[in-house]
Design a protein around this nucleic acid. Structure first.
Lengths: 344, 344
DNA sequence: ATTAGCACTCGGTAACCATGAGTGCTAACA
DNA sequence: TGTTAGCACTCATGGTTACCGAGTGCTAAT
């Protein structure tokens, strides 16, 4: 069953109004709006229909209406008027890239901060997926007789390091030879393929040249099995507390503990394809987020999808504005990062 | 004016009881305690005196008594019965060191987690002060024509890295020479002294050997000016929300935003001398912490103070238990870390 | 010095009521 | 037939009142 234009208009105005005021919307206040020139009685009839169809709800028998999840979903899918960003927002976003920065993480971190400040919601930025970065150089630096640290540098300037124990039987020349072989063979290989490549191609080579091959290989290779967790950066974690829907400490608690549960969020956010995605309320499959919506966008370098930026807010979120902001920022991030790292 | 033994006993029982129950303590319930064999009337008289002296307070005219800040202070300074840790707690703490770990940060991070779980308060662990670590090795790795990354490894296996822009005029041999000179001259120097040492001793040397000395020096040295912020690790940030004193969202908000304000906390915690320190309520000089107490302890390697572990809880905190835990953990941390890193 | 007894205070809870914003329905109207 | 005015009804909200009980301070007896 399709909605009439009038019903669409009313739905849209209800959602807009509720997003602004956080108060249930009544027929009388709707009838006073410029866009709508109908009597409150007519509007009541239409609202009854909209409710029957599941787009709006009452909080109690004689209250005004509030958008349902289905209502928000419809609003986001069909009624959203793409809002232009104002000049000031654009300027603020672009200030992220104002100074010339070389480190990925800094840019990402600053993006998270700015996003949360612009929206007053919580921002989450998933750092670049390190595992597709290509290895530039490996170094092994002995610390003392028992331990050494292995350092991996990628073509994007990202540095990973692992400390491992070094059997006393291994001597300096072995280490040097190993490092040389590794660099020779592994340079340019994406981190995620290191292990594979080593076992298939490099192991044999090492066996030929290195005395304590077995020891050497295993201690070092163990440190290669990196749990390359991309880093999550949060901004405005406490912003949600100022939203009226979180005046209840229990809700706040479950939401915040959820946010601090980083692994969970990581999965929630990573699993998006390119483009903007909106998940509303229970669509997030987590009771702590029943009153929340999550909007995600991805950024990339060239054609490789690198990471995700996201905004977590109440279901009563300024969808239009947030979507515009994310679109704008993700495009900018992509442009800047592509310029910076494409040509290696 | 000194307190009588009886007053001390009553004060102690009041504080103990209130810490347990979070409810104002009345004369009747006190008279029923085993330790106290007085009628409620007598206790009322004593309580009136204690109140006049400022050790306890009423929440309203006819309520039971609650410890004042002065009361907690006296309790912590004089009435604390050093409580033994139970076997289970000890086991849990020692599980931190169960597997052999090489990385400082991991130990620290896990300590924070365990502390918060054991206490149900918020734990804060200030990582080791990297600036006193001694430089083991510097490496400079070019990424492309324009950028390079400098890597600093300390004797403890800590790795710092900085990306910087590399003027096209600098060629590979210059870099190599520079790195050699730097390693030759700076090995063993604490990071905090690097800059000094460079300008006093190494600059001259570099000038003699390197073509593009000025360029080289400044771009690299800029990256040496590291804001070596020791890392703060938090555990149980949301634990405070389960405390009854934080049933009010406004308080929660101000406290959490305060916690996320990392620099502030950093200063609050770093400024302690060795040993255990207890700061109660307004002693923290921060209105968001008026209802909180902060207990800190430091850990070290050998004689060098390295970092701090701390617990943030309500003023109604289990002082005895928390102090015991911190004492125990800081001693263990010191032992383990000393064994691990002393002999470089 | 201690305690029993008593009047008093005050937070908390429940009951009650008035108010007003909002609804659904019916009947009149264009 | 779609729109609107009118009206009875619902319910959250906030204020008033009353009552209970835990706890106090004071006085007088032990």
């Amino acid at each position: 069953m399709l909605l009439t234009d009038r019903q669409l208009l009313i739905l849209q105005v209800i959602v807009d109004d509720f997003i602004r005021s956080a108060q249930p919307v009544g027929s009388r206040s709707l009838s006073k709006k410029e866009e709508i020139s109908l009597s409150s009685a007519t509007i009541r009839n239409e609202m009854a229909d909209l409710e029957e169809l599941g787009y709006i709800e009452k909080t109690h028998t004689s209250s005004g209406r509030v958008p349902s999840e289905k209502g928000y979903r419809y609003y986001v899918d069909h009624l959203l008027s793409p809002q232009d960003l104002n000049q000031q927002d654009i300027a603020i976003i672009q200030s992220i890239f104002a100074e010339r920065i070389f480190e990925f993480e800094k840019i990402i971190q600053r993006s998270a901060k700015i996003l949360s400040e612009l929206t007053n919601y919580t921002s989450i930025v998933l750092g670049p997926d390190v595992s597709i970065n290509k290895l530039k150089k490996i170094q092994i630096i002995p610390l003392n007789e028992e331990t050494a640290v292995a350092i991996f540098v990628t073509d994007t300037g990202h540095v990973e390091n692992r400390t491992f124990s070094l059997p006393a039987t291994v001597d300096a020349s072995d280490i040097e030879k190993t490092v040389n072989i590794l660099n020779d063979r592994l340079s340019g290989v994406p981190l995620e393929n290191l292990n594979d490549k080593i076992y298939k191609e490099v192991a044999m080579l090492l066996r030929q040249h290195i005395h304590n091959y077995d020891f050497m290989l295993h201690t070092i290779l163990d440190s290669f099995k990196m749990p390359l967790t991309e880093k999550l950066f949060f901004g405005g974690k406490t912003n949600m507390l100022s939203q009226p829907e979180f005046h209840d400490v229990a809700k706040v608690r479950s939401l915040l503990t959820m946010i601090d549960q980083e692994e969970w969020f990581y999965n929630l956010i990573r699993t998006g394809s390119a483009g903007i995605h909106v998940k509303i309320g229970t669509e997030n499959n987590n009771s702590a987020m029943d009153n929340c919506s999550l909007i995600t966008a991805s950024y990339s370098v060239g054609s490789e999808k690198l990471g995700t930026i996201a905004i977590l807010g109440p279901t009563r979120m300024e969808y239009s504005r947030v979507i515009s902001l994310l679109q704008f920022l993700s495009r900018d991030l992509t442009t800047v990062l592509t310029k910076l790292y494409q040509n290696n």
